[in-house]
């Protein structure tokens, strides 16, 4: 679970395009505040007032990997940053996924830019000798990323595309129909996908939500939502919520 956030400078080690509008950045710095998969970092960018919250895709020593999508001016600026530059990050934000609930055969279901946090989650589950399987959904062939990385971990990895140009034609829920006897699920992606996954799932699970944030650490109440367990802040009490508490 979440500890205490840290603020620090990270050096860009890599920043390259890996799919349509999708970039992978490796940052080097003090990663000690990151305590769980599914947490995020909040990145200050010159000329932009608010930080950009991006989930942690991988962590190894002092190297932190993020995968982000260019959706506006801020992320477009990020995509042009060259290695060697430093970025001011808040790290250790959000609750993250609870791996203790997973059971032996959890299912990881990601959509688009919601795929990255599932990678670090998969590694953590493997460390705990669990046996995860993976469904990744994208719009089209040119959007697909991460397939080789999940397969390299030795995991069954199914890809869906909405236009049928790669993998199974349809949504992640079309692939989900073929999975039974999974012990738990973890999901991250657009809200419509999360709802569909929640409705179709045969087990309990956890879903990671997105919202426009002010601070990213629980101070401003900018990203509040109502849950069955009371009001929660997506940035501090989330971004991961249990299936049972979500009010759709």
């Amino acid at each position: 679970m979440a500890g205490c956030l840290k603020k620090g400078l990270f050096k860009i080690r890599k920043n390259r395009k890996i799919a349509k509008d999708i970039y992978l950045m490796i940052l080097q710095g003090d990663t000690s505040a990151v305590t769980a998969p599914g947490q995020f970092v909040n990145i200050a960018l010159n000329g932009f007032y608010l930080r950009r919250p991006i989930s942690v895709c991988d962590l190894s020593g002092d190297m932190l990997t993020i995968i982000y999508k260019v959706v506006g001016h801020g992320t477009a600026y990020m995509s042009k940053l060259e290695k060697g530059r430093h970025l001011d990050l808040l790290t250790g934000l959000g609750n993250g996924y609870d791996t203790s609930c997973s059971g032996d055969k959890p299912l990881l279901i990601g959509g688009g830019v919601g795929v990255p946090p599932l990678y670090y989650l998969a590694k953590k589950l493997l460390e705990q000798k669990k046996h995860p399987s993976v469904i990744l959904g994208f719009n089209s062939r040119e959007d697909v990323f991460g397939e080789q990385e999940f397969k390299a971990l030795g995991l069954e990895t199914v890809i869906t595309t909405a236009d049928g140009s790669y993998g199974i034609s349809g949504f992640v829920t079309d692939a989900l129909k073929n999975f039974h006897n999974y012990s738990y699920f973890y999901s991250c992606g657009p809200e419509a996908m999360l709802k569909a996954v929640s409705d179709a799932s045969e087990s309990s699970g956890e879903l990671s939500f997105e919202e426009r944030m002010g601070c990213g650490f629980g101070a401003c109440m900018g990203c509040s939502c109502k849950t069955k367990y009371g009001n929660k802040r997506i940035c501090k009490d989330g971004p991961v919520l249990k299936k049972e508490e979500v009010i759709w």
Binding site: F48, Y49, L50, G74, E211, R212, M213, G214, C220, M221, G222, C223, S224, C225
Partner: peptide
């Protein structure tokens, strides 16, 4: 209701 936050030049809206 959310979104409750927007960015602007050198500032923000809430």
């Amino acid at each position: 209701p959310t979104p409750r936050i927007a960015e602007c030049a050198s500032g923000m809206l809430n």
